[in-house]
Amino acid sequence: MLKHTTIVFDLDGTLVDTAPDLTHALNHALGQRGHAPVTLEAIRATVGRGARAMIEEALRVAGISDDVDRMTADFLLHYERNIAEESRPYPGAVAALERLAASGARLAICTNKREQLSRKLLQALELEAFFHAIAGRDTFAVSKPDPGHLTGAIALAGGNPANAVMVGDSVTDM
């Protein structure tokens, strides 16, 4: 039994493959400013660092500069409208969540995606009910890799950091 264990998951790249929809949003923002699109492979590594980091990396790779704030706003608007067009849970993710929940574990999300977008994605994929807490980059005054983001997510889930584990896919999650 995992009754007193809190398992905290990263969202993008760990539970859900969101890279296709994030790439579409990035390419929309680039296109709005007259820039060429990028491939999913070119930005996949930046997915977990947030929209702004994806845009900055795309501009850096292309050797161009632009209004990153404006592009981020365009990105987020497009992404919110198309949040689960191609995003899907990774194979086995739902079954794992079901088993963990059935064993008594408290499940939480700790992501650098904004909380409202995280909830919208989880609702669209019918996953939100698995989680006792969802902590986005804007839930607290800090975000990953600051440890306060993780400990805050654990506290929101009613857990104890001494009895918790983080499951992620990048150095940001470590």
Results as ranks from 00 to 15, higher is better:
Ala25Ser: 15
Gln32Pro: 02
Thr139Gln: 03
Ala141Thr: 15
Ala45Ser: 15
Leu156Val: 04
Leu97Trp: 00
His28Val: 03
His78Val: 03
Ala105Asp: 10
Gly104Cys: 09
Gly92Tyr: 01
His149Asn: 09
Ile83Ala: 10
Lys120Ala: 15
His149Ser: 14
Arg106Trp: 03
His132Trp: 01
Gly13Glu: 06
Ala153Gln: 07
Leu156Asp: 07
His132Phe: 04
Ala141Val: 14
Ala105Cys: 10
Gln116Phe: 09
Thr14Asn: 07
Ala51Arg: 02
Thr72Arg: 10
Ala19Trp: 02
Glu80Phe: 01
Ser65Gly: 12
Leu76Ala: 03
Ala45Phe: 07
Ala141Ile: 09
Gly48Ile: 09
Pro20Tyr: 05
Leu77Gln: 11
Val171Ser: 12
Leu121Met: 12
Asp69Tyr: 00
Ala164Thr: 10
Asp17Ala: 03
Glu57Leu: 12
Asn160Ile: 07
Ser118His: 09
Gln32Met: 14
Leu76Met: 13
Asp169Asn: 13
Ala124Trp: 08
Thr151Cys: 06
Ala45Cys: 06
Ala129Val: 05
Asp67Asn: 13
Ser118Val: 11
Gln116Tyr: 04
Leu59Asp: 09
Leu76Lys: 11
Met54Ile: 13
Cys110Asp: 12
Pro37Trp: 03
Val165Thr: 15
Leu100Lys: 06
Ala162His: 09
Ile43His: 01
Pro145Ile: 09
Asp17Arg: 05
Arg81Pro: 02
His28Ile: 04
His4Lys: 14
Thr23Asp: 06
Glu128Thr: 08
Val142Phe: 06
Ala102Lys: 09
Ala62Glu: 05
Asp10Glu: 03
Ala36Cys: 07
Val61Asp: 09
Pro161Cys: 03
Ala133His: 01
Val165Asn: 01
Ile109Pro: 12
His78Glu: 10
Leu77Ser: 13
Gly168Ala: 10
Ile43Asp: 02
Asp69His: 04
Lys120Thr: 15
Ser118Cys: 10
Leu121Thr: 11
Phe131Val: 13
Ile55Val: 10
Arg60Leu: 13
Val94Asp: 03
Gln123Val: 15
Ala101Gly: 12
Leu40Trp: 00
Phe131Glu: 11
Lys120Gly: 09
Ala93Trp: 00
